[in-house]
Simulated assay, not measured.
Amino acid sequence: MSDSIVVERRDNALWLTLNRPHAHNALNSVMTGQLVDAFRDAAGDDAIRAVVLTAAGDRTFCAGADLKGDAGSFDTGRAENPLVQVYRAMRACHKPIVGRINGAALGGGLGLVSACDLALAADHARFGTPEVRVGLFPMMITTYLIRQLPRRRYWEMAFLGEPLSAAEAERYHLINRAVPAAELDRQVVDVLERLEANSPNALRVGKQALDLMQDMSIDQTLTYAEVMIERLASSDEAREGMAAFAEKRKPHWVRAEESSHG
């Protein structure tokens, strides 16, 4: 890959770093294509337990679509919009995606934050939808934001183009928490360590279930949950987890490559 994103394996986590700080990490066709490939690769790698999405620099996480250098960002043509492809790849990646938000997240960049499963942000970060100021509207990212923000608060953001502070984003549950920039890495590592302690299968199935259940009726949700909890309870990992609990020890989560040799 070129350096539009940096892909780095750190222990059992895959770190994806948007790497166009000179352009405020704006999304162009090269970057979106590489993000799609990286999330698909992560989804197919059983050794990867989580994905961290972050950016180079400390001013801007992502300014959205590159309005200067990539005029085709919104030209769907015969294919799907590039940013939609990224969101779909994130949704299909059944590994926890942790956003490490180190600066402003605007437009499509805010969409990336919203598509993460967990998000930690430096307290100087801002979150906004300035599209109306250039004749556009936050169409695609609305898919996520109308499910995460109170309606009137999001309408205000979308119509006025004014950003939220990190503290406001935390209060409205757009991010999990805002922390001083010097503490951001420690907080992300802490989250990764806690994810590592949990069942990979439960996280994978649970992420998929949460995604599907939000669009179901209550009766559909109960029926689906009944099937899925039975399936999980009969899994090898659940048996190991419950045995470890009874024996007061840490569970041993067997990776797919280990089980294939054992």
Score class of each variant (00 low, 15 high):
residue 254 V to R: 15
residue 137 F to Y: 15
residue 115 A to H: 11
residue 116 C to R: 03
residue 118 L to W: 06
residue 21 P to D: 03
residue 12 N to F: 04
residue 71 A to H: 04
residue 239 R to K: 07
residue 47 A to H: 09
residue 254 V to C: 15
residue 81 N to L: 12
residue 247 E to I: 04
residue 14 L to A: 07
residue 173 H to C: 12
residue 254 V to G: 14
residue 44 G to D: 08
residue 154 Y to D: 00
residue 110 L to H: 03
residue 249 R to E: 09
residue 87 Y to T: 06
residue 88 R to A: 11
residue 188 V to L: 10
residue 96 P to K: 03
residue 71 A to M: 06
residue 14 L to D: 04
residue 137 F to Q: 12
residue 154 Y to C: 01
residue 66 D to Y: 00
residue 88 R to Y: 12
residue 38 A to T: 04
residue 191 V to L: 15
residue 193 E to F: 12
residue 244 A to V: 04
residue 39 F to N: 15
residue 211 D to V: 05
residue 231 R to I: 04
residue 256 A to Y: 15
residue 63 A to W: 04
residue 48 I to F: 11
residue 122 A to P: 00
residue 82 P to K: 02
residue 170 E to G: 07
residue 221 T to Y: 13
residue 138 P to C: 07
residue 62 C to I: 10
residue 176 N to P: 12
residue 154 Y to H: 07
residue 20 R to Y: 01
residue 44 G to C: 08
residue 59 R to L: 15
residue 210 L to F: 10
residue 151 R to C: 11
residue 76 T to E: 15
residue 69 G to Q: 04
residue 216 M to K: 14
residue 111 G to N: 09
residue 260 S to G: 02
residue 207 K to P: 05
residue 232 L to F: 08
residue 110 L to Q: 03
residue 117 D to F: 00
residue 40 R to A: 00
residue 89 A to S: 07
residue 193 E to T: 14
residue 62 C to A: 06
residue 23 A to C: 07
residue 101 I to N: 00
residue 135 G to A: 05
residue 205 V to Q: 01
residue 194 R to D: 14
residue 58 D to S: 09
residue 164 L to C: 13
residue 15 W to D: 06
residue 108 G to L: 09
residue 234 S to Q: 07
residue 111 G to R: 05
residue 176 N to K: 07
residue 31 M to I: 01
residue 118 L to R: 05
residue 247 E to R: 09
residue 163 P to C: 08
